[in-house]
Design a protein around this nucleic acid. Structure first.
Lengths: 272, 272
DNA sequence: TTGCTCCTCACGTCACGTGAGGTGGC
DNA sequence: TTGCTCCTCACGTCACGTGAGGTGGC
């Protein structure tokens, strides 16, 4: 029989941990003095403690360890516990690896003044949206070409919708595809199911896509080009391929000054 | 100006998180109605929220994020914070990778009945120990050869030390090296600095080593061979090389039955 | 008598989730 | 009036670390 201090030193755990394990029923001392409350542990409990610590070190919670050690968990349930735990751990490893990359990038910036674009990319499906839209053609890509086209386009579209008494039910959306004479720019607002095409606008459905790489850009559209480059770079580095027209979803826009704008960039992709 | 609900939806965070960030001073709303307590956020705060979330997602704590966003942290201090965080994260990644391997091993055992030896290896330095020792020669390695030799050896050594009135100050230790006629086995007890060699025992210093791979074996010495194999396998797989005589340190031993014994296996190594 | 070990509360950790109980404007 | 959004507490989470305040045997 060992005192709690001896047992803790043999098992390389703290006395506090043993008291805690006693309290939650994970490892109850072989004997407790009814007068002083002193705990006594048997030599056979060293092995039980080691088994419990091994399970805990797999990342199981103490209540799970307790149930396993009591034999309350059959092989099937144990298998379930372990595979669930494995999935958690694998995803945490992925997240942590990405985190480490971002940390290193930040550190390099501080150390070397190397420029960086920290970008958080999320991949997800896009649902189809019914929109009222208008198009125009810009000379080429880049905010310097698109800006002078899309601003007036949205303004006119807004006026035309107001004139037609059409209510907008969601955020503004814009998308881009190539035309023979340059880049075709579409400005659109989400509308309800009853709205039909009218003067100055066409009602159509922007198709959903199964997979898109998206990132959120904060600030003026003058710098949105950098965010798009970073997103395209991410897509290449992560083995995806472009699959369809790029879209921009306005989350915060018009009445605000451009420096406060928030825009989600959406690029449909396929797995390489 | 946005209500807290609108702002939460734009920033893709929960309302509760915004209230929390307000409370800790990380992101205080631009305006709070003095009567109702309603919070109003400005459009410019969207960018601040995004910056805060990016820092948080590096793994920094919210009080650190708060200080950074306030500008209370200069570049040097920020560099320190980030490199400290990087070190934490890298070590957690290492631990998690090992954990994943152990989990997979357990899962394979449940699935396939494949036998396994889960072993937790720790590398550390060993400090030199002054011991009273006695040696004998066994026919070869393995518990079947060593057992019949070391048992009586420890018994005689204990008697001889008692006869000489020598007090043992620590655990029993045994170590093994090769002799021309077989395996030389040394049984030893830690003793104080004044003790000198006597009848039936030699006082010597077991040298310290800078690096040893160690594992703890629970149970009878009949199965210690498996633990040694697993330890040697681990040493090979992890790119270490053997460097000196193997040692066994008794943590729980003689008055107890062998099934309760606890023994630390210590193998001096060098980095490959 | 002084140390040492043991005991039982009980707070603190970290970033919120989740009610409970209530209010204000469309 | 019914919903909806907003508000302020305040408990719970997980596995202990860390006192505070006190006791028992060498």
């Amino acid at each position: 029989m060992y005192t709690i201090g001896e047992f803790a030193s043999i098992g390389r755990v703290s006395v506090r941990m043993l008291r805690h394990y006693d309290q939650i029923g994970l490892l109850v001392p072989e004997r407790v003095d009814p007068v002083t409350g002193y705990r006594s542990y048997g030599a056979g409990q060293v092995v039980r403690l080691a088994r419990a610590l091994a399970l805990k070190d797999l990342g199981l919670r103490l209540d799970e360890v307790t149930r396993i050690m009591r034999g309350d968990v059959d092989d099937d349930a144990l298998h379930g516990l372990l595979t669930a735990r494995r999935a958690d751990l694998a995803s945490r490893l992925d997240l942590d690896r990405a985190r480490l990359g971002r940390l290193d990038a930040r550190i390099r910036v501080i150390e070397g003044g190397e420029s960086m674009s920290v970008i958080t990319v999320e991949t997800k499906a896009l649902t189809p949206v019914r929109v009222a839209s208008a198009t125009a053609v810009a000379a080429g890509p880049g905010p310097e070409n698109i800006g002078p086209v899309i601003g007036p386009l949205f303004a006119r579209l807004g006026d035309d919708l107001d004139d037609a008494g059409v209510e907008r039910t969601g955020a503004a959306l814009s998308y881009y595809d190539f035309a023979p004479d340059g880049l075709r720019v579409t400005a659109a607002f989400e509308v309800g199911a009853q709205v039909e095409s009218g003067s100055g606008f066409v009602v159509e459905e922007v198709p959903g896509v199964e997979l898109a790489a998206t990132t959120v850009h904060y600030g003026s559209m003058a710098t949105v080009g950098e965010a798009w480059s970073a997103l395209h770079q991410w897509i290449g580095e992560n083995g995806y391929q472009l699959d369809g027209a790029a879209r921009e979803l306005s989350i915060v826009a018009v009445p605000e000054p451009q420096e406060n704008w928030v825009t989600e960039l959406q690029q449909p992709v396929t797995r390489g």
